[in-house]
């Protein structure tokens, strides 16, 4: 039922080039996603080589220049310049670093917290489980954005604080998934056997239970990266993100907002970057899900239901 609800799995009986073309066509969405994501990763890693200009270099006599193809634009600044005459393309390329690293690191932080708590609750059950469940309920009741905004306003906006705040406020998703799965897995034969052989709880959780959750977590984590990128951009948009002059997409969108009616490109290109990056990562996540764990479809709806962002 689930498989039919999604894209049909590639048939293995085909042969030769035709088979590969067919496969590629069937996987066109995840492939597009992988390409988009790849472009972003390359931009983030190779920013110093790819960016045509220093993203911080100002030239206030050449400010608010339109993109190259518009009247008054020049090939020196392909996407034009911002209010301080900084090259927009270079800032977007460097902005990929902030968005991508913030997204990935926040997911790592929240994943470690969430998975850890989920394993503990699911494996030990009883009181530990009750505590974990309570913590999840409390976190889920907070208006997430408000919590994050307040925490950052109190702690001061910086890259480190953003990663911490995003991580610390978004972990319940992992806990819910991991706890539910652990409850099931801990009763399976191989776990019972390991326990009978005198394996410690920590060892069993890490060696036997966690590997069984790997594909689920990979899918969930990749989709969460996309969500974190949007959240980070919104914090920056409100002026509570990575402080300037460091280029970040959300911050650029916020700065360009005032020019929306005339110099539309200043806010449009960073907005587009956020959109494409999020889309690419979501496609990859969806593709991974279909490949690794089609069963996840329903629980992912649960994930979306749990999302607070």
């Amino acid at each position: 039922m689930q498989a039919s609800a999604g894209r049909p799995m590639p048939r293995v009986s085909d042969r030769g080039a035709a088979r590969w073309i067919r496969l590629a066509w069937q996987l066109r969405v995840p492939i597009c996603g992988a390409l988009l994501t790849g472009v972003m990763v390359v931009a983030a890693l190779g920013a110093p080589y790819l960016a045509p200009h220093d993203p911080l270099q100002q030239e206030i006599t050449a400010r608010l220049r339109p993109p190259a193809w518009m009247e008054g634009g020049s090939p020196t600044h392909l996407l034009g310049t911002d209010a301080l005459g900084r090259d927009l393309l270079s800032r977007i390329v460097y902005g990929a670093r902030v968005s991508l690293t913030a997204g990935v690191l926040a997911v790592v932080v929240s994943g470690i917290i969430g998975v850890g708590l989920g394993l503990l609750g699911g494996y030990f059950g009883g009181r530990a489980d009750a505590v974990v469940n309570g913590a999840v309920s409390i976190m889920m009741a907070f208006p997430f954005m408000l919590l994050a905004l307040t925490a950052i306003a109190v702690a001061g906006p910086s890259f480190r604080n953003i990663v911490i705040v995003l991580g610390v406020t978004t972990w319940p998703i992992y806990t819910r998934v991991v706890r539910a799965e652990t409850l099931v897995i801990r009763e399976r034969e191989f776990v019972l056997a390991a326990r009978a052989l005198g394996g410690g709880a920590g060892r069993i959780m890490l060696r036997h239970i966690l590997p069984n959750l790997a594909s689920t977590l990979l899918v969930l984590g990749s989709l969460e990266v996309a969500r974190m990128i949007i959240l980070e951009s919104f914090l920056s948009f409100l002026g509570l993100g990575v402080p300037p002059p460091t280029p970040s997409w959300g911050g650029m969108l916020g700065e360009g907002r005032i020019h929306m009616l005339s110099k539309w490109w200043i806010a449009t290109f960073p907005g587009l970057a956020i959109f494409l990056a999020t889309l690419g990562i979501t496609f990859v996540g969806d593709g991974l899900r279909d490949l690794l764990d089609p069963r996840l479809k329903d629980s992912l709806l649960g994930r979306e239901a749990a999302g607070q962002g």
């Binding site: 301080l84 402080p243 300037p244 002059p245």
Partner: peptide, 19 residues
């Protein structure tokens, strides 16, 4: 203020700007 910080940077004064 960002422009001022940039001008100062250009003559070798590192500026920690806070808005």
């Amino acid at each position: 203020a960002q422009a001022i910080a940039d001008y100062l940077t250009k003559v070798g004064i590192r500026v920690k700007h806070r808005h």
